[in-house]
Amino acid sequence: MSETLLDVQNLTMKFGGLIAIDDLSFSAKKDHITSIIGPNGAGKTTVFNCLTGFYKATAGSMYLSKNNNKMDLKKFSDFKVAQKAGVARTFQNIRLFPQMSVLENMMVAQHNKLMTASGFSILGLINSKSYLQKEKEAMEISKYWLDIIGLTNRADDNAGDLPYGDQRKLEIVRAMCIEPHLLCLDEPAAGLNAKESAELNKLLKFIKNDKKTGILLIEHDMSVVMGISDHVVVLNYGKKIFEGTAKQTKNSPEVIEAYLGTED
């Protein structure tokens, strides 16, 4: 059994009178892929937005275990979740920097590290050796990840010019550049064909096994969910209706009911 990475307790998010997430508790383990599934409007993306600081949760707690100490994610607002807690995310509709090159996208992801190295631009302006060294290291990291997704030869092209599937993969490895503890992926397989989906599975398994990064996954594509998830949380109307392994989920009557409705 591996240790718990993310512990969410009694998370509630209200928008006025609308309860988007209702008293949700679940946990995600390190070196696990935890999937959150559910019909449209079940509140999956809202969970992500709470976790990554885009929304402030109405109630509940979210703790991330990082090097044996627990960090309260509620303390961090928007960009600090990524900067301080090491929670990275991707978006349902891809959010790359389309007019910037693939490599630049990867470099922006390493901004905080490079910013410190550039002495808040002062050392960078005078071309200090230590900064150039750090910049080179960041290039190496970018190249490492681009090699993995096979985009090194397109590194200098605009990210917006890449095919859709490559943009998806680029967004994931860009998120990996911040060296996260937890990677939250919002429908990474949306719009991918079968071959691209299979490649995505491989990439996610690599991140889980070789990079020891916990993955939280929202997905509608069941071939992805069933193929790689270690743990599945099913939401409906903001409530958790089921939690278990992929196989258990597939056979759960509650889940089938939520997706297909009941027989009269």
Binding site: T52, G53, F54, D78, F79, K80, V81, A82, Q83, K84, A88, R89, T90, F91, R95, L96, F97, P98, Q99, M100, V108, A109, H111, N112, R174, A175, C177, I178
Partner: peptide, 13 residues
């Protein structure tokens, strides 16, 4: 290009 993506990468807007 994208402020939200920047935030998700820990860039202080």
């Amino acid at each position: 290009e994208d402020e939200i993506a920047c935030k998700s990468l820990g860039v202080n807007p």
